[in-house]
């Protein structure tokens, strides 16, 4: 039996109207979001731009942090070497990781000395069918980047299904009364969902 890990589900595209939910949590509650963030969350993005622009320009991650800390990046399961020549499309799966142990960990490093060892799966940009405008990408955070980038990504907003939101609130020991909710235009395609913005306190 083949089990394929799927990418962005149809229901995760940006709904025309959605509930925008604002939530404040304490720092000690941040790790409750880590399972979600390592499985991947849908986030809004301007499409057609290079990966570096997504990370620095849109997400607001400092350039030196991207260079020095996010040493392993995957785009649609392909290890990325060149951030400026890897383009973002609707439904792109972007995964960010710090440096990893092991020979294979070193092999996956961006432009690393051992990149040849995984040459067959390295990302190669085709530049075709890029598309433009607003859309969604699926973002995963791993290991050291979970506590470091998690607050920034959560503050920017993640797209959730209603049952995901209910589970999350349950884990946090909260109910919908604890959230500030407004229904408004989110842009993008059809479907229902929630744009959750989380502020992490000290």
């Amino acid at each position: 039996m083949e089990h394929e890990v799927t990418g962005l589900a149809a229901a995760e595209t940006i709904p025309a109207r959605c509930d925008k939910v604002a939530l404040g949590i304490g720092r000690e509650q941040l790790d409750l979001f880590f399972p979600l963030l390592q499985r991947g969350v849908a986030v809004q993005a301007e499409l057609g731009c290079p990966l570096r622009e997504l990370l620095c320009g849109q997400f607001g991650i400092p350039g030196d942090y991207v260079e020095g800390r996010i040493t392993t990046i995957f785009l649609d399961n392909h290890p990325v070497d060149d951030l400026d020549r890897s383009l973002i499309r609707e439904g792109s799966r972007v995964t960010l990781s710090a440096a990893m142990p092991g020979l294979v960990g070193a092999t996956m490093r961006r432009s690393g000395f051992y990149a040849a060892l995984r040459q067959g799966i390295s990302h190669a940009e085709t530049a075709g069918d890029i598309g433009a405008g607003q859309g969604t990408v699926r973002l995963k955070l791993f290991n050291l980047l979970l506590p470091e980038l998690g607050p920034l990504i959560l503050a920017r907003g993640i797209l959730l299904q209603r049952d995901e939101m209910d589970r999350l609130l349950g884990d946090l020991g909260l109910g919908s009364r604890d959230c500030d909710t407004a229904s408004e235009s989110c842009g993008g395609g059809a479907g229902g969902g929630i744009l959750l913005r989380v502020t992490v306190g000290n």
Binding site: V5, Q38, T72, F74, N77, P79, T95, S97, M100, P101, G102, V104, G105, M108, R118, I121, K140, F142, N143, L144
Partner: peptide, 16 residues
């Protein structure tokens, strides 16, 4: 922080 098992997510993401 995570031990060697920190590789699970990364290897899975790489399809390896």
């Amino acid at each position: 922080a995570y031990g060697t098992n920190v590789l699970t997510n990364v290897l899975n993401e790489a399809g390896g």
